[in-house]
Nucleic acid binder design. Structure first.
Lengths: 334, 334
DNA sequence: TTGTATGCGTTATCAC
DNA sequence: GTGATAACGCATACAA
């Protein structure tokens, strides 16, 4: 079934058929009605390949997910999917390991899929500086800030990470904690981790709490299992902590398990705070205290900015969606 | 950059270029080498739209995910993605609510994306019987059995659900449990739930344990939050249980939280067993006893069967991948 | 307002 | 082995 068949069937020419199917003007109401009816009758659907070949573009939006065991990104993909459903766009989701180069991958996929726009879930400054200039479609980076990156086609939406972390640590300090261990990402390759680390460091400095990254910081991938290992490692260094701040909820859960295996109770012996606000945090025992990111809003604004730019608004915006600290059972005053 | 440019550049014709790029015979080694080099030099990539327009097909494999808060499917999508990466196929993942009609959605997407094959994650017999005949590409249904469905283009890969559940319940009985509550899906619309329910029922019958589905079974969606509600509902009916079997790990975690909120300890007061074997189960406290599905193998065999059929093997296979019961801390002998 | 014709980048069928 | 050339289904400039 092609527009040719439809033309034969209705008596109109392919030109008119095409115009009707693309909601273009200069078609009589009569023709429009007849053609629309015939199309509906046989469930006609334009051939996307022909359409896109002709128009030299696809209707794809590419989503590059960096770190497939990071549940936050899972939640974001879902929220994005919900918002794109019903639009003319299609989502092509590509997952990669958290230490692969997302920009090079994007360059490759752009050639292959010719997407109208890109969404990066997670991204590394260094990679962007090195190769992002090779990408010319509108992009949005979600969960990292790109405001100081010199690219006109790259928006960003993220939360006020360092501030949120700083406030969280300060609150822990006010709650009486002085020995605070940190579990976070590999700072040498994760901007997000570096930024959150900065929040920690500032809080410690301003409150005159000694903090030695070599001893009090353990690096982990964004997964349960690796954070379990990191927590064990932290413990093995000989210091004891009354609180552990983790840079992701998945890390917090791995750490909580490690603490339990060491015979420590949360929060009686150690308070634990995570970051992200995953749904699961509300259901574990004890409920997880966490710096909650507004996933829905991150997704919504991300898509809005991207679609705006695809439609030629040509704006380069960098938004901050405040995170909200939620104190739950896993942290207590001492 | 098109094959025309490449032709001009190398001095060969588009025909030869095309043959080389498609690994076809009847090309001199010299030509092959020269063309491959030129292509590599400028990072040439065939235009997928033109290719697919000509060949009248895409290289897409469509994945229809039924129930977006079902973490098992998340794990499966990831495993499938890993296996498809590097193959000539691309994955188009479509998430829908767990009570939408996956077959109608598939029919629609088939028209739109002309995929080479379909993977259903979760599926309902009734929907397949009603509309699956409208789909003519190879399909595989993962996590449900389709062996008694009269379709030549539908394979299936799933675990021995009813047997696994029956054995689990029997083991609970051997562990001394007589009052066992069940939290599972809505049986009127979930085949999987019906099948797992059957496993429960048989175990109860064979061991002469009274079981009243009206009282001892609570229906829930495959999500933490709804299972929390279901567990509360189960408790509100006045019966007490020494064990609760949940038809999904996400349900088990919702239920565990509800139990904790009612002042009950797991496993001291109530044993809890889940189904799926999600990674998180290893990290919660107490570790979750679960009927573990082999996600990697489900994904692997699913893809293998699908690709086999896409390549014309024309086989209609229904495989059972045994589930493995893993007894962990959340269940105890009484 | 409608019809006709051209070309998008590729594959495949012919000749050579 | 290689080179022309005709489709594939659509959008669009232009003619009517």
């Amino acid at each position: 079934m092609t527009i040719k068949d439809l033309a034969a069937q209705t008596g109109y020419s392919v030109g008119t058929i095409s115009r009707v199917l693309n909601n273009q003007p200069n078609v009589s109401e009569k023709a429009r009605k007849a053609i629309l009816e015939a199309a509906a009758a046989c469930g006609f659907q334009l051939n996307t390949n022909a359409q896109q070949l002709k128009q030299q573009r696809s209707n794809n939006i590419l989503v590059l997910v960096k770190g497939s065991s990071n549940q936050l990104f899972g939640a974001l993909v879902e929220a994005i999917q919900r918002r794109v459903a019903g639009s003319p766009f299609h989502l092509v989701v590509d997952y990669m390991d958290e230490d692969h180069n997302e920009v090079l991958r994007a360059v490759q996929l752009c050639r292959e899929k010719k997407p109208q726009g890109l969404i990066f879930l997670g991204g590394n400054r260094k990679n962007f500086l090195a190769d992002f200039r090779r990408i010319d479609v509108p992009c949005v980076l979600i969960t990292s800030d790109a405001s100081d990156l010199p690219f006109h086609n790259l928006c960003s939406v993220c939360c006020d990470e360092d501030q949120a972390v700083k406030q969280t640590i300060e609150q822990l300090i006010r709650m009486g904690h002085r020995q605070i261990g940190i579990i976070g990402g590999y700072r040498e390759r994760s901007d997000t981790s570096r930024r959150r680390f900065e929040g920690c460091r500032q809080a410690f400095i301003e409150h005159n709490i000694p903090f030695d990254a070599e001893l009090d910081y353990a690096s982990s991938r964004f997964s349960y299992a690796d954070s379990y290992r990191a927590a064990k490692e932290l413990a093995s260094r000989g210091r004891t902590y009354t609180a552990v701040f983790c840079m992701a909820d998945v890390m917090a859960m791995g750490a909580m398990r490690a603490l339990a295996d060491s015979g420590l109770r949360v929060p009686e012996d150690v308070s634990v705070v995570g970051f992200d606000g995953l749904a699961i945090g509300e259901f574990i025992v004890p409920r997880l205290s966490t710096v909650s990111q507004n996933v829905e809003l991150l997704a919504q604004r991300g898509i809005e900015l991207l679609r705006g730019n695809i439609e030629g608004k040509n704006i380069c915006v960098h938004e901050i969606i405040p995170a909200q600290i939620q104190w739950k059972e896993s942290a207590k005053t001492i």
